[in-house]
């Protein structure tokens, strides 16, 4: 049994110590917004915040967590899509299939907490999650929008014309 603080609520989770946090969150806490993609910390679909740092929960055994550690999942970043990242994602229709987007949003919110106005290079370095639909261009633009960086957003803008 592990005591985990998930989205501000301390829960008793009947997890073995070796169980990756991802499966404790999905199968035992019942929060399915955090996704399974690869199981080896490559794709980032399972990204959550632990004490404000973005981490890949598929590769963190529950035993490595302390009861005081604050875990935040996609369900916990705002009650009503009011986080600036969610708003920017909605504004640009960033998701396609959407499966990786929980992780992308967790990576973006963690980035903006540390670096409120990231450069393109900082976005490149921080946003390493895989998206197979290929929403990368809109993710870059949306991060700039969420950061209030109009010039960055314009230079990254999805550019299309109809002739």
């Amino acid at each position: 049994m592990a005591k985990l603080n998930i989205n501000g609520k301390v829960r008793d989770i009947p997890a073995e110590g070796e169980m990756p946090l991802l499966w404790a969150i999905r199968e035992l806490a019942g929060l399915t917004g955090t996704k399974f993609g690869c199981g080896i910390a490559q794709c980032g679909a399972c990204s959550v915040h632990i004490n404000g740092e973005v981490m890949r929960s598929c590769s963190i055994p529950v035993s490595s967590l302390k009861p005081g550690d604050r875990i935040v999942t996609i369900e916990g970043i705002s009650p009503n899509l009011s986080n600036p990242v969610q708003k920017a994602w909605l504004e640009l229709d960033v998701p396609q299939c959407g499966y990786c987007q929980s992780g992308q949003i967790m990576a973006a919110t963690a980035l903006l907490k540390k670096t409120p106005r990231p450069t393109d290079a900082q976005i490149d370095a921080a946003m390493t999650n895989i998206c197979r639909c290929g929403t990368y261009q809109r993710i870059r633009q949306a991060v700039h929008i969420a950061a209030g960086n109009a010039a960055g957003a314009k230079s990254a803008a999805s550019d299309s014309v109809k002739i």
Binding site: D124, M127, G134, D159, S160, V161, K162, I163
Partner: peptide, 15 residues
Amino acid sequence: IMRLAEMPKVETVIV
């Protein structure tokens, strides 16, 4: 799999 850092700027022309 290619990540965001390698994504080029894409421009679309809908004919």
